[in-house]
Design a protein around this nucleic acid. Structure first.
Lengths: 214, 214, 214, 214
DNA sequence: GATGAATGAGATTTCATTCAT
DNA sequence: AATGAATGAAATCTCATTCAT
């Protein structure tokens, strides 16, 4: 009421356009607020009223855009993983060797999480807090993501570039787990995003060449 | 194990039923029940009264042995990680090369979790559900565990056996994350413990020699 | 009917669509929708938004015609009872003996309710759901209705046609209650309106001649 | 806590007996408080916290004895109607003629409600406020009650004492409705219970002999 | 007049924890 | 030590109503 979205940003658009855009922006504002509050408090300790306050809307407004608190978390997770999958698909098209692809995927996953420490906290930790989401964990979206990883490994094995004595699924899960662990440490630490980017190269090297000296 | 309840409270009981062993058994029964219920429901959805029922005690009794619900989870986690650290320390004494040590550590971590799917579920998922525990995550016990892993890497680098261009901390976190991810998949799947043991060798090989063909 | 919306608000509209008739129709549409929804869900479970949807108007539009949700129910009740009173007044003028008048009043009350099962449901049940309406229950309109019944009895007693050892008020209330009960059973059952009409004769006979055989 | 039931009433019983009785008494205290609050405010406007305060217990305590707010009303209704049915059964055994039985049943129904104006308010009005209860309305307990009334009429017809041209069901519903209406008027008026008792004789006479002079 | 997005007060219910017995 | 009835704080979510467009 006191703060219409139009008052918060420069507004040189027509009224009709503003209305339409404004609605979408409100949804985004709520999601962004949810990321912040979930990151700080965790899913269970986060209060819907606190998210509402952070978003500058009334409590009830949240329920115009989301079915319930769970759906806030689900949506954040889905948006994150969709972004990841999309970027990876692009990257796969642009890189030829399995090694390059893996390096690129590691960069992307840590890159996306490194863009926002708060998002990284939500994805790595809150992910496991809602039973709704846990079911997601064994479900399409997450599996699709694992499949992308696994397929890269499989294709690399087929072309003879990668060793064939490791199950692509196991390798994919191990890689995902490693990145998740790295991201978690970074998310709850105080290091710069820079550090995460540097770790990216090391993790890729580790997975490709191993720890042993050649 | 390290802390028997008998040491924590005055033990001037006279009843035959209240022997030191009896009391310890009750505590263990509560912990075992908590593992079962946490695994099935998750930390937040788990009800203290359900744990009490599963343990065959009254609700209030739980508070004679544990400060609150959080402490149940904390204790489970601590017991698990203590067991892990203890076994790893033994293993380190018995193995000479860094490669052997790493193989053994991977075996141990997956082995301990593979002993009980329910424990694995609690450790991999619930671990991230209590804010109390999240603080643990950056705290002594967990860091001690990471240090054990990191030290093995560092010593392997010092001896020239392992490559030196990877930060031991990063390698340790990646390894822990990978094992956590593998364990999580297994914990919520239906595969035999056997499968987990087999994965163990692959993951160790992966970390040591890398994915690339030599 | 007695109060057209056109009389309640200034009517200086210019738009062709906003004729007096158009506005009145919208009001009626809302009332009809309210009867349907109240009948199906009950007053409390009925949602204003659902009534709006059923009437084909926006939520806010309802508040242009009615002060609040309570007034919807009040209005339905008032319209019903006004119709009843009007018909009864006519009937009284047309019938001479107390017995005929009572037979006719019973017919009218069950007839009006039998015209619409939904209206019958709203009148018999929802009537008692709003505190606003409960106050109505002891108030002018309802009492006026009871008075009509009571006066018929009183006049019959004065003329010597009816026995004088029964309070006219008690008789009126008993009669109203009996008809309400009969209507309620029919409203929530599945019998034809026909059945209600047939019951009408029996109830009148019952009240006039009693259950005992002569 | 500050007020144990034992402190509110003389307590010369053993501790064990007091505990057992105390628990049942707490349940009764809650029901009595619910009758008071429902009567004053109506089912929907009544607040659980107000009932708790009136009963001298904590809000949560109510949920140890009742599943939810609906069940409070349901229970009150059931207790009332059970009492009614029980008394009527006794009365039927003690009276021979249909006329006596009907007089007695009318007396009983108005007598039970006349014992407590608040209970009468709850039974006559709140009865129709909960969808849970509305289902009760077409269900066993209420129908059982109607059956008792209807059977008396039927038997009276069979013996030739009552006229046979009125459906026993219709007569039963009309009688119940009439009594409900009378009770409702009394419940929300200020007349003495005495008045209700007097009305009782009139209503019975009305139903038996009819309004017409013989 | 009409709309419908936004509001925000407020109630039920749950459940960890306590403490008298 | 053990019990489990009682507590009561606290949080999600609903929905009648408003009001800027």
């Amino acid at each position: 009421m006191a703060e219409s979205p139009a008052e918060q940003r420069p507004t040189d658009e027509t009224s009709a356009a503003r209305t339409k855009r404004g609605a979408g922006e409100k949804r985004e504002r709520i999601l962004a607020a949810a990321v912040r509050v979930f990151a700080k408090k965790g899913f269970y300790a986060a209060r819907v009223s606190e998210i509402a306050r952070a978003a500058g809307v009334a409590d009830g407004t949240i329920y115009l855009y989301f079915k319930n608190k769970d759906e806030l978390l689900t949506t954040i997770f889905e948006q994150g993983i969709r972004k990841l999958i999309a970027r990876m698909r692009e990257a796969l098209d642009a890189h030829e060797t399995a090694a390059d692809r893996i390096r690129r995927m590691v960069e992307i996953q840590l890159g996306v999480l490194g863009e926002s420490r708060e998002l990284a906290q939500v994805i790595t930790v809150n992910l496991r807090q809602s039973s709704e989401l846990l079911e997601h964990y064994g479900q399409p979206l997450f599996l699709e993501y694992l499949h992308v990883l696994a397929r890269v490994v499989k294709e690399g094995q087929a072309s003879g570039e990668l060793r064939a004595d490791v199950s692509p699924q196991t390798a994919a899960r191990a890689l995902f787990g490693a990145l998740d662990g790295i991201a978690l440490s970074w998310a709850y630490g105080s290091a710069e995003p820079e550090v995460l980017r540097k770790a990216s190269g090391q993790v890729a090297a580790l997975f490709l060449s191993g720890l042993e000296r050649r």
